[in-house]
Design a protein around this nucleic acid. Sequence first.
DNA 1: AAGAATTTTTTACACGCGTTAAGACTAAGC
DNA 2: GCTTAGTCTTAACGCGTGTAAAAAATTCTT
Lengths: 345, 345
Amino acid sequence: MNRPEIHTMEELSVAIGVSRPTLSRYFQDPTSVSRSSVEKIERGLTRVEYVPNFFATRMNRKSTGIIGVIIPYLNDLFFTQLLESVERAAMHAGFTVITQCSHSDPLTESRAVETLLSMSVDGAIVTPLGEQTDLRAYARLKAKLPFVLMDSRPKTLMDVDYVGSDHLQATGAIVDYLCRVGPPPVFLAMPPGNFNAGERERAYRKRMTELGHEPVVFAQTQIDDLSHYEEHGLAALGAAFSKGQYLDQSILCVNDRVAIGALRAAAQYGLEPGAQRRGGLRIAGHDDYPLCPFTVPALTTVAQNVGAIGQAAIERLIYKMQNRNLPLEQEVRLIDSELKIRQSA
Amino acid sequence: MNRPEIHTMEELSVAIGVSRPTLSRYFQDPTSVSRSSVEKIERGLTRVEYVPNFFATRMNRKSTGIIGVIIPYLNDLFFTQLLESVERAAMHAGFTVITQCSHSDPLTESRAVETLLSMSVDGAIVTPLGEQTDLRAYARLKAKLPFVLMDSRPKTLMDVDYVGSDHLQATGAIVDYLCRVGPPPVFLAMPPGNFNAGERERAYRKRMTELGHEPVVFAQTQIDDLSHYEEHGLAALGAAFSKGQYLDQSILCVNDRVAIGALRAAAQYGLEPGAQRRGGLRIAGHDDYPLCPFTVPALTTVAQNVGAIGQAAIERLIYKMQNRNLPLEQEVRLIDSELKIRQSA
DNA sequence: AAGAATTTTTTACACGCGTTAAGACTAAGC
DNA sequence: GCTTAGTCTTAACGCGTGTAAAAAATTCTT
């Protein structure tokens, strides 16, 4: 079953008996070639081992057919869900996706930008690291190719297309719910540095004020590595409990990973958060991390619409790619989240 | 701050005042150029906007400097940890990493293989989907370039280099532990289809037999989608509990995600698994999923040494790439896992 | 200062394919 | 049989860079 290996289109053309330009057109768009040739070529391809050279095909085209994606890190199921949704949408639209991960490191992130630029991708979808992000890299991206920010955006890049969740809607919804079923919630935040965490905190304060309640935010912790969300939640809430605080309050966590740490803290203090229980402690999260239905108790949260965010980002990017000449206005697309009421609140 | 854009090395050479071949050598290896030229070039590069064309640079080289990675899906923190470790090791060794995700789909997986082949990657590290994998794609990979399987391997590809965990050691260690602190464990397995799940089940049976115990395996569930591990664990153990089975047994789960579902089932039945508790129910997992320390109760498990696996895979791959002419013998590298005793068992 | 050693420039070809223009061929339509 | 449109082949150039050989320039040695 060892078919002869063929390395160039030239060789292939003599092997099949079709001219090279015809082959070239066939590989780019089979419908641009007559039916009889298509059959001839496809019959030939079964007898022979050949894959077109990726670099050579992309180098000499006006458009490379590649969409670049940069995500900050992988060890978070929220980003992997987002990435999956983006890759699916891009592949569906016929693009090759090149994903680069920053691995929480600004230098790696800058290198990722350079890689995408050097590959002349048609466009890029980027979720920045956070405040450590090297903005010069983004400035170069913006100057050279269509790109859209996804999920979070630095304050210094507010003039770029953006697709993400509507924090006012999402946080508002869960604040409303918590106020409906119990005392006004306390907010378990993150130390400053994370864009979305800040946005959510602001959204919390805003909604609480609108409802006539006093916002209460706490985030004290000794955890230095900000990527250890669960530890942060555990430490911060544990510290509060140890001072006798919030033992019978509603606690809204800035995201589900922090909430998972918070659930753990509650368990350590023998508390069982949940609307059904006496005692009054409630814990809610934000994001609908895939494990939420399986925590003990199952975590009440707000589900970001990951599928819609990824798809909208790709749609907008493709639109920009197809209209590079036109002077487009900035588009900010905020997507609604959905309340997921489970047991913990 | 807008530096003039330069698109080709030719232009760059006139802008800087250095010949193009010298620039070419500089970009590939700055030490191959005299100090004075290096300084001249680097001074020039600060005044000008230029990135070498990725495709053009790779097309005409004997080695592309790219390592391809294929992973089955992203929505599992174990794979993302593994991927991170591989990418880190590869980047450290000076390679560009191109990662392709199969998204649980054999067709996407085959396409990923084609993509890597068409990019003439120097080598590939692959974690196959499972039994649905299209083995022809792998046969082509094997024929054309150095590659090593990681984490799991199809029975039909046993002659390929492999790096993964030593299931006998890992499962043996947790079986031993469970037998030491309580009754011999029951094994909560997966429906057939997943290589590692099968290996672990066999390892469990073997160790139990060696210890003189009767192995007991159960995996009944209505869950059709095998990727929903937590649901499977919840459903299977829930069903057992509802029949009054295993309520005071030790339960070894095939992996941590199943164990998280099992913990949930226990909670639903008002049971609190853990060595410290009365009642006898114990639940243990396998993998050391990053959330294990934060489950309620914290999950006792066996930690796969993800860092070592990724690094060993890259090391072996690079060795094979550097010795493509030599007829190398197959190498199977099994790495030890470490018991993580927490609360659940 | 002359010669040797190193580095750079010049020149030219290569990589594999995209792309174009001109001509040759084929299958219709009259 | 002829024209016409559609499709193909031939021939040639281009993409941006790698790479090799020879000539030129620079630096180092003695």
